[in-house]
Simulated scan of single mutants.
Amino acid sequence: MPLLLLNVNRLSAVFWDVDGTLADTEMDGHRPAFNMAFEELDLPFVWDEALYNRLLAIPGGLRRVKLHAEACGVALSQHQLAQVRDRKRFHYLERVRQGHVQLRPGVKRLLQELSRSGVQQWIVTSSGSASVMVLLEQFQQQIPCFDGVVTSDDVAAGKPAPDGYLLALKRSGANSVASLAVEDSAAGLSAARAAGLRCLLTPSPWDAEALRDSVGEATAVLDHLGDPGEPATVLSGASCQEEAVTLKYLETLLSVPDR
């Protein structure tokens, strides 16, 4: 019986991060939501863009709050952290519903192209299910449905642990050799690589410096995915002749020797 070989040049699945990858959620969504929660709970913190930029190196919103509070000499109880989580979630969901959060360049276009081509598309995020669902609801008229969603509620450890990606690979049945992750952060890149996935990195503008030492681990790095009139710039990896990430470009990345 002849041996069937996997065509690794045909893309099987794309696993998408959410915050900073699908949409610009951080500066106009999460950051002001945290600030509103801090004010409501009489906590002495205000996160401006420069500070929040630095804090983004800490994966996980509540861990970010806890460590920042400790650095300021404030010990928050578990009850206080739970209050911050609940109030921040409320304000974030409201901001998404009000249209403060927008898709990043090229995301809508690429999602639609991959959907038409029958490529599986999954979300793998360290955010909670509620935050993800309201975001998808907001954009449901613009983007196709995802084949599956893995959030922080589904795994014991968030990024940079690979748990989310490993679970998505298991649920999707996709072969890691013929799949890619799309990420924007060092933690996300580490998680994808630890799960055996090649990773296309589109760093958020405010996170580019923090990612400098991680670029060598990514299969390619672009400033964004590209749209008509808004060409993508390759920062590392294979050249992108069309100045936009397409299915063809992603399949080109599958043939790049893994690092």
Score class of each variant (00 low, 15 high):
112 Q>N: 15
54 R>K: 14
81 L>G: 00
138 Q>S: 12
192 A>Q: 04
103 L>W: 08
83 Q>K: 04
114 L>W: 04
160 P>D: 14
118 G>E: 10
115 S>A: 14
103 L>R: 01
40 E>I: 00
189 L>Q: 09
81 L>Y: 05
108 K>Y: 03
111 L>T: 05
20 G>R: 01
176 S>I: 02
50 A>K: 09
8 V>Q: 13
24 D>E: 09
164 G>F: 02
124 V>T: 07
9 N>I: 11
187 A>D: 05
151 T>F: 00
254 L>K: 03
122 W>F: 13
66 K>G: 01
61 G>F: 01
64 R>S: 02
65 V>A: 08
33 A>G: 02
178 A>R: 01
106 G>S: 07
58 I>E: 12
101 V>H: 07
157 A>G: 04
61 G>Y: 03
29 G>K: 02
220 A>L: 15
129 S>P: 09
140 Q>S: 11
84 V>P: 00
39 E>R: 06
213 D>I: 04
246 T>Y: 04
121 Q>N: 14
159 K>Q: 11
99 G>E: 12
219 T>D: 10
53 N>A: 14
23 A>T: 08
135 L>E: 05
229 G>Y: 06
136 L>T: 10
223 D>E: 10
76 L>N: 03
97 R>Q: 15
106 G>N: 02
184 D>N: 13
190 S>V: 13
218 A>V: 07
